[in-house]
Design a protein around this nucleic acid. Structure first.
Lengths: 110, 110
DNA sequence: ACAGTATATGTCAGTTTTGACATATACACA
DNA sequence: TGTGTATATGTCAAAACTGACATATACTGT
């Protein structure tokens, strides 16, 4: 929950609210960022499972390859709205979206 | 899922993507809007359970009473990002958020 | 080495979202 | 009737997001 986990996230451009230092994120902010990352992972999985390139998905949702890449890598410039719309476009149900949002990361099969 | 349900939603300012006519929303678009409405309901519930006014919540999240009202009434101008940040600020967990997103409306206790 | 494909990252003008403000409605209780 | 509190709705400048483009990296095959 705290510093250990925080340091694992690479600052990509995240400057959240008033918080300057990336390592000083509150738990709320962490939760929000992790949700975005989780949705990005889901998007990538779904896209790949369908054998689509980022460019092909971009066409499908009237966006661009670069924005799809940013969604999947968790760039600070992408909204959750866009992630959700994209996942819905790939056929995800609300229930499946909920599952992505809920899970903290994945069982870590190491 | 289809026309019956669609007509129940009052057009508040929704003009989604290319779709002109509100009654012609695709299932994806419906799912997106219903998610927003569900999150708005959750926000209202949580706020009221804490005995906060919209103005008090607004202070808490550095926003304004009017924007909180728009969040709770499902105004087309509010993002899911803002709804989620607000719910997190009220102490909702990712699991609880997931639950809100998942449920279509509520068992309808009539 | 070169060409083709896939993904990542930086930039930017156009669009959308935001907080703030004004104002309206509704309900209480003096 | 007024005064106070709570919520809803319209507007707008400023901030955030978006698609598009350029470009970089990496991994094919040839």
């Amino acid at each position: 929950m705290t510093s250990t986990k925080r340091k694992k996230l690479k600052a990509k451009g995240w400057k959240f609210g008033d918080v300057q230092d990336f390592l000083e994120l509150s738990d709320e902010e962490m939760a929000f960022i992790e949700m975005k990352l989780a949705l990005g992972r889901s998007l990538k999985e779904r896209r790949q499972r369908k054998g689509l390139s980022q460019a092909a998905l971009a066409r499908l949702i009237s966006s661009s390859q670069s924005r799809v890449a940013k969604m999947e890598t968790g760039d600070a410039s992408v909204s959750i709205d866009l992630l959700i719309k994209s996942l819905l476009a790939l056929g995800a149900s609300r229930k499946e979206l909920a599952k992505s949002i809920e899970q903290s990361k994945r069982p870590a099969a190491a």
